Computed example of a mutant assay.
Amino acid sequence: MHTENEIKVLGIDLKKAEEKLLDLGFKRTEEITYRRYVYDVVPVNPNAWIRLRTNGKKTTLTFKESLKDSVDGMKEIEVIVDNFDETNEFLKAIGHEPRNYQENSRVNFEGMNCTISLDSWPQIPPYMEIEADNADDVNKCLEALSELVTSDTTSLSTEEVYKRYGIDLSSIKELRFDKVAA
Rank of each mutant, 00 (worst) to 15 (best):
L145Y: 02
I50C: 05
N55S: 13
E103F: 12
Y127F: 15
S151M: 10
D137Q: 08
S151P: 01
R53K: 14
G56E: 07
V38N: 02
D85V: 12
L142K: 15
R35H: 01
E159I: 07
F84S: 04
T33V: 05
K75Y: 07
I32E: 06
E160F: 01
S155G: 15
M112L: 14
V44Y: 12
T153N: 04
T154C: 09
W121T: 00
Y127H: 13
V41Q: 06
T60E: 15
T33A: 03
H96S: 06
A48H: 00
D133A: 11
Y165F: 10
W121A: 05
N47D: 11
K92E: 15
S105P: 03
Y162H: 01
L145H: 12
E143G: 08
F63N: 04
L52I: 10
Y165N: 01
I130L: 09
S151C: 10
D82F: 12
Q102E: 12
R28F: 00
E65I: 04
K163Q: 07
D72C: 13
M128F: 06
T158F: 00
V38Q: 00
I124Y: 08
A93N: 14
A93P: 06
Y162D: 01
I50K: 06
L148S: 08
E103V: 09
I94K: 11
N88M: 01
T54G: 09
D133G: 15
A144V: 07
Y39N: 01
E76Y: 15
R28D: 00
K163G: 00
R99W: 02
N55V: 13
V81Q: 06
G95M: 05
E31A: 07
V107Y: 01
N83D: 15
S105T: 15
L145E: 10
Y165K: 01
I32Y: 00
T158A: 11
P126R: 04
C141F: 09
N55G: 10
L61R: 05
L148N: 11
L145T: 14
D85E: 15
N113R: 12
L148V: 06
A48L: 03
N134Y: 05
